[in-house]
Computed example of a mutant assay.
Amino acid sequence: MQRSSVENFLVGILVNGLLIGTLYAIIALGYTMVYGVLQLINFAHSEVFLTGAVVAFEVFRVLSPDADTGKALNPYLVFVIALLTAMVVCGLLNIVIERLAYRPLRNAPKLVPLISAIGVSLILQDVIKLLEGVQGRFQMAVNVPPAFTQTLFKLADSNVQTRDLILLGVAAVMLFGLNRLVNHSKVGRAIRAVAQDRVTASLMGIDSNRMISLTFLIGGALGGVGGVLFALKFPNLDPYSGTIPGIKAFSAAVLGGIGSIPGAVLGGLVLGIIENFLGSLSGLVFIFPKLAFLGAIKAEYKDVGAFIALIVILIFKPSGLLGRNTTEKV
């Protein structure tokens, strides 16, 4: 009986950790795409991701069932509309951010665009707060259709809902598409050429500015996808909801190896599992009463434990799990 309880406990941690980790991985890809080309940490990406979540909130709000007739669009069609709208809005927003805040500082010391990125992040927070606040929506509860919250089956002690499978399915499609684009297309080769040597790529006829803008477009679109999926999984939003997931996604990118697409995915999954395990330690008390001291470890401490684990891993592997050690050009 005890063995069965332990197995259910571990399976539950793995399932929930993979779901959260998948979200982190999608957001982390936005950081990785930009860093891989410009060696720039786009801290405004957390607010770009939040913009995608707000777009999902607005689409589900506007297209929710009519109060009088009760008629509404098919919920899956509404989800697709939200997904495509968020990808377009966040992709274009990222291009505007690159053009106005980063491109003029491209040759400045690295600290300058970093400060600019933080400034853009704060500006976007206030813009979202202004746009939603003037309508009295400081707290945004996404109107998730009941079809998405239905439990399809149980896996150990975890209820797997429709939105969980949607999250995994959309993530798989996006990751497959991104891999094909970056590694098996002419555009991907151009982006990788700019990332490797911008000057030489320009001499070979590649428009570096265009490729950099395209990279920001792709990164923003990925952030929009992550925002919509986040809104489905965690429907209670506010203007600051992007900060913590953004920091964790950046940490996942660093953990996996900043600049590595497979590393961002692996880092997100590892961080999600570690975080969920640490947040569930108190549950072991009910299985092993002798571990009563674990009851003092509350779920709120999972973030602290996850970042401690991150630090320990990076001490032994500074370049990240799949990162490569690089030498500075002289």
Rank of each mutant, 00 (worst) to 15 (best):
S202Q: 11
V55M: 08
R106G: 01
S4G: 04
I20C: 00
Q125T: 12
M174P: 03
L93S: 02
L222T: 10
S64E: 03
Q150D: 12
A193C: 10
Q161L: 14
M87N: 11
T32N: 05
E275H: 05
I315R: 10
V127K: 07
P245Q: 06
I308M: 13
R61F: 14
L10T: 10
V265Q: 08
A44Q: 04
M211P: 06
V6N: 06
M1C: 06
S64D: 03
G268H: 01
L93E: 11
L222G: 03
K290R: 15
S121Q: 11
S5Y: 07
Q150Y: 07
K129W: 01
K290I: 01
V144P: 11
K129Q: 13
I313C: 10
T327E: 15
E328S: 14
R3M: 12
E328R: 14
S4C: 01
P145K: 08
A264H: 04
Y102M: 15
R180N: 08
G219R: 04
P104K: 07
D66C: 09
K233I: 11
G256H: 02
P239Y: 15
S241D: 08
A28T: 06
F234H: 11
V80E: 03
V78Q: 00
L167V: 15
D164E: 12
G188P: 07
P235M: 05
I308Q: 00
A292G: 07
L291N: 12
K233N: 13
G320Y: 02
N143Q: 13
T149Q: 14
G305W: 00
V270R: 00
T162Y: 04
R3L: 15
A292P: 01
